[in-house]
Design a protein around this nucleic acid. Sequence first.
DNA 1: CTGAAAGCGCTTACAG
DNA 2: CTGAAAGCGCTTACAG
Lengths: 353, 353
Amino acid sequence: MSKAAKAKSSAAIRSTADFARYVGLARTTVSRVLNGQPGLKQKTIDQVQRALSETGFTPNAHALHLKGKRTSMVGICVEDLLTPPAVRKLAALQKLLRERGLSSLIEVFAPGAGREVVRHFLSMRVEAVVFIGHFHREEIEARIAELIAHGTPHLVIDHFGLKNAHTVSLDRAKAMEDVVNHLLDFGHRTFGLMGIARAPSSRFDRMTGIHAALKARGLDFDTCTVSLDHLHERRNDFEYGRRLAGSFAQQAHRPTALLALNDEIAVGALRGLHELGLRVPRDFSVAGFNNQDVAAMTSPTLTTVEQNIATTIATAAELLLGQLDAPMKARPMIKLIAPELIVRESTGPARVD
Amino acid sequence: MSKAAKAKSSAAIRSTADFARYVGLARTTVSRVLNGQPGLKQKTIDQVQRALSETGFTPNAHALHLKGKRTSMVGICVEDLLTPPAVRKLAALQKLLRERGLSSLIEVFAPGAGREVVRHFLSMRVEAVVFIGHFHREEIEARIAELIAHGTPHLVIDHFGLKNAHTVSLDRAKAMEDVVNHLLDFGHRTFGLMGIARAPSSRFDRMTGIHAALKARGLDFDTCTVSLDHLHERRNDFEYGRRLAGSFAQQAHRPTALLALNDEIAVGALRGLHELGLRVPRDFSVAGFNNQDVAAMTSPTLTTVEQNIATTIATAAELLLGQLDAPMKARPMIKLIAPELIVRESTGPARVD
DNA sequence: CTGAAAGCGCTTACAG
DNA sequence: CTGAAAGCGCTTACAG
């Protein structure tokens, strides 16, 4: 075959059969070179290698899998609204998996679409499924039951308290306990809740921690906390924090400290209070959550909670990889990650009205 | 078979053969029900459906593909350092693709690892490959050449000026022209560059726009711009902006306006200037880029540039989907997206020293 | 209306 | 050292 003819035909090479024909050897031989098996003439190897770089041929991964090769894929479900910490977890997890030779199939787990997502993962024969974030409880529990029935390992990152789920989660109760204790030490006794749901959803969620901290000092939860959830549509972003802070400022008996669900709400609160001519921490103390980079850049800088995402993801990867090798554990594994309070300028002594 | 025996055997069902045996029908028949083909007895259909929900069986997607079904997968390469705008583009693109029945295989295109990533995509027989961000020029051009040779459609989002690449990109030159004109109108004549490389890399990058705006008023670029890139390691984050602003403030002939590569640097600059007791925009005007949510929450709020990500991604999806249907276009398609200047409080009249 | 056979792109015994 | 045949899990002509 002339060089030109070869170059021309290379575009049509889609299978080892085509490729073997191009090289002029049997498929078996080509396959052996591709898989680096021993006992081949050097000349044969060179021949195949050259053809490989000439054509850029890549064996079909789907056919390889059919012949028994592992798919080396992990399915990752993320929440519909991708928050910055969720993105960091996703990126960190994918990096760790990639280092172990696993690639990630990432899908958004939108409410109601969970079944389809997991079935897609199963049809792709992923080796495990990871959920990152908080989901509709019943839906995700049904998915996990499905995965267990299939014998496909799973792991939940963040959403704590799901039935039969292997879980890695920040100890959010401990985090809020630390935040509230820090503020109690400053003399605060009334706390405005910003974006934090009043009903505790699990043994380690934020509300549990707030309760515990207050109770330990003999304080009554209902007396000490204020919620204005009814005033604004809950959006958990900067603008929501800005508006909500304004509403807290206009209360007759306004709290002295504001506890925000995340840094966005807290930074929005700083802005909202600033617009009203109020000073932080003189008039209000404000605490955020997640320790995003912006928290060190606001004026005043923001007291917040570090999630230790690297630890979370390292733990998650370990649990996940352990499941791939070993037979499935019947008992769900639960790991809590310790948070870290980062004290900055936005919290200080309670004002005396 | 007893119900118990059935339940027990369902765990081992991995193929249509197993499943057909479980139902008690031929594989052909089962396949027909699974694919909703006409001409089947209702009783047969019901039988299969029931078994389907009993076992949760999912056909192997890899085998389906081997039989000629499209993979319906798109490979997406993102930059190593995932910036917030890149995340938004990624999420928006995945959403649009999913609505069209396409799933996304996402990989980080780390320097030096590009070849491996693209080969993985090709082995998975993705229908197209998308690159989001800015990459090492030679490496990505080699990958694009490889994709073209394979007849696999591609699209580059952001990185402008790559050889033979179908590209959708913000018109960054126009964006900076708008920013500089806005500041020139305020009387500014000296501009500090924060994270913006001095050497223009393409016909539509930022430096080109800065040049154009100055030239249109008969101003000399070298006289009007100051770069302190040598003083700090370039990190493009908040802290980098904070330090760099401090350095600009301490210059003998300090500029009156600061142009930042992104909002992080700009917000960091606001903080850095605040720490030195300088006021914005009285002492310095500061302009960001990307219009992230935080830009409306700083004090002062930040003048910046909106990327119109929704338009970018809608355009990208259109170009991409067009390539899937039609035969490959020889001429690269280039689309520029118009930016939008968002004027807020951080820019104002130039101080007079 | 249902089933046995061929074939997609690979690899791995098994022959030569 | 190299090649022809079987088989992974599916679907689609082709028979019955």
